[in-house]
Design a protein around this nucleic acid. Structure first.
Length: 429
DNA sequence: TGTCCACTGGAAGGGAGGGCTT
DNA sequence: AAGCCCTCCCTTCCAGTGGACA
């Protein structure tokens, strides 16, 4: 029941620039057409069509930067196969598919950024073929060999062609090595009824260097490289989606061009372009503006960047937060280009002040490297000759904002900034 | 040219925490 | 309950390093 003065009421009745489903502007949405990826779709379809005939398609490795449509193309084909399967079960298939064995094709999608352990990947694949909860592989507890055996048996229960999509595969390999790929790429020799084909998706061309040569050759039977989109192509993609997502005449003249141009500067990232357009419209909506203007786009750009940093900081483990906090406090007190030793001393004080046992310096060097990888600090190794060799560390986030954000964390005690000196520290060891 | 500093970063291993098996 | 497995986070140990300086 929505009462007379319910807080949502005024918002529910307000006009929106969106025509309805705003998920159309989310990168995960797969549209009916993928502009400027027709060639890639055809290439991949020509490999995957083998599966529809009941044979094993070659394994495929797909490379390309973020937002170049790799996942979209693969999932597009998955959807097409599922559509054929549906039509086939309802006997509505065209005659040309009469000789095909479409209902025996199964797709399994695993995002290795989310599931990044051997066990997790095997478990996820195996459980796709289980309906009963009690038959599921548990999320921990089994030896690897048993998980693999169970996965193999489940796949081989009936004759089928299983296409396993491993998205963000480089994340799995750099974190947990190539043993999953080793097992999956040789699984066909142990299957009696079924066949397995792998599609690996990665935005890092070099990750195959970490692979065992046998795995590398089995996995890379076919390779595809997705080029970045240029500004014109991004414009087509955005126009296509905007037509479905917005009421007519809502978008200002240059809104789509600007979103495309900004995203093209960042290696042609369509995901970025879509986010920009969506957030711009959300800002316009929130301010009850009737249309989206380029001003909204610039503000959306800032908002996305800020949200990214805040999200990254918020999800840091406590000790990483303490390290970042120490760096920011030292910089605020006049320190610049800090060394690992200086940061460690400051961190020691901050950790003790918060009632925590400080970690070792070895561990802190790893945490600093992680902060560097996240783009929250800039750390590079520099030699000072006789004065040693160490990292030179600088924060690359807005100091005051992030200090405030970290101080909101209950487990971290606000530190009297005067106690953490900028510049050279006296050693506490 | 050799020394030396202040680390870097790899390797190995411990232990806690999740959960299964017997 | 005891024994096992896997993952994560961490410590300990230590060889290696770039370049200023004697």
């Amino acid at each position: 029941m929505i009462g007379q003065d319910n807080v949502f009421k005024s918002h529910m009745n307000s006009e929106s620039v969106f025509k309805g489903n705003r998920d159309i502007l989310r990168p995960s949405y797969i549209p009916e057409q993928l502009p400027h990826r027709e060639d890639q779709i055809q290439d991949l379809a020509s490999i995957m069509v083998t599966a529809l005939k009941g044979n094993r398609p070659s394994n495929v490795l797909i490379f390309g930067k973020t937002g170049t449509g790799k996942t979209a193309v693969v999932r597009f084909l998955e959807r097409e196969v599922n559509r054929l399967k549906r039509e086939s079960s309802e006997s509505e298939l065209d005659d040309e598919f009469i000789d095909y064995d479409i209902e025996r094709v199964e797709y399994v999608y695993v995002n290795c950024e989310v599931v990044d352990t051997h066990y997790g990947v095997m478990k996820n694949i195996g459980n796709k073929f289980v309906e009963e909860w009690s038959d599921q592989i548990p999320f921990t507890g089994w030896p690897m060999e048993k998980v693999y055996e169970s996965l193999r048996e489940k796949i081989d229960e009936e004759p089928r062609v299983v296409v396993i999509i491993l998205d963000e595969l480089d994340k799995l390999v750099t974190k947990s090595g190539d043993s999953v790929l080793y097992h999956l790429s040789k699984i066909n020799s142990e299957l009696e009824q079924s066949k397995v084909s792998l599609i690996g998706i990665s935005n890092n061309l070099k990750f195959t260097e970490f692979l065992d040569p046998r795995v590398k050759s089995r996995l890379g039977e076919e390779k595809m490289i997705f080029p970045p989109y240029d500004a014109e192509q991004l414009k087509d993609i955005l126009s296509d989606r905007a037509g479905k997502a917005f009421e007519p005449h809502v978008l200002g003249n240059d809104v789509i061009s600007l979103c495309s141009a900004l995203a093209a500067q960042e290696h042609g990232d369509a995901r970025r372009a879509l986010d920009l357009l969506r957030v711009s419209a959300e800002i316009a909506d929130r301010e009850r503006d009737e249309g989206v203007s380029t001003d909204h786009v610039y503000r959306a750009k800032n908002k996305i960047e800020q949200d990214c940093v805040r999200e990254a900081v918020n999800t840091l483990p406590t000790h990483s937060k303490l390290v970042l906090y120490s760096i920011l406090l030292m910089e605020q007190n006049g320190g610049e280009k800090l060394t690992t030793g200086e940061v460690y001393s400051a961190y020691n004080e901050v950790a003790k002040g918060s009632g925590m046992n400080p970690l070792t310096q070895r561990r802190i060097t790893d945490l600093i490297s992680e902060l560097d990888m996240l783009g929250l600090v800039n750390a590079r190794v520099k030699s000072f000759g006789r004065r040693g060799r160490t990292k030179e560390i600088q924060a690359s986030v807005p100091k005051r904002d992030i200090i405030d954000l970290i101080e909101k964390d209950e487990s971290i005690e606000k530190v009297n900034t005067l106690s953490v000196r900028g510049g050279k520290q006296t050693k506490l060891m």
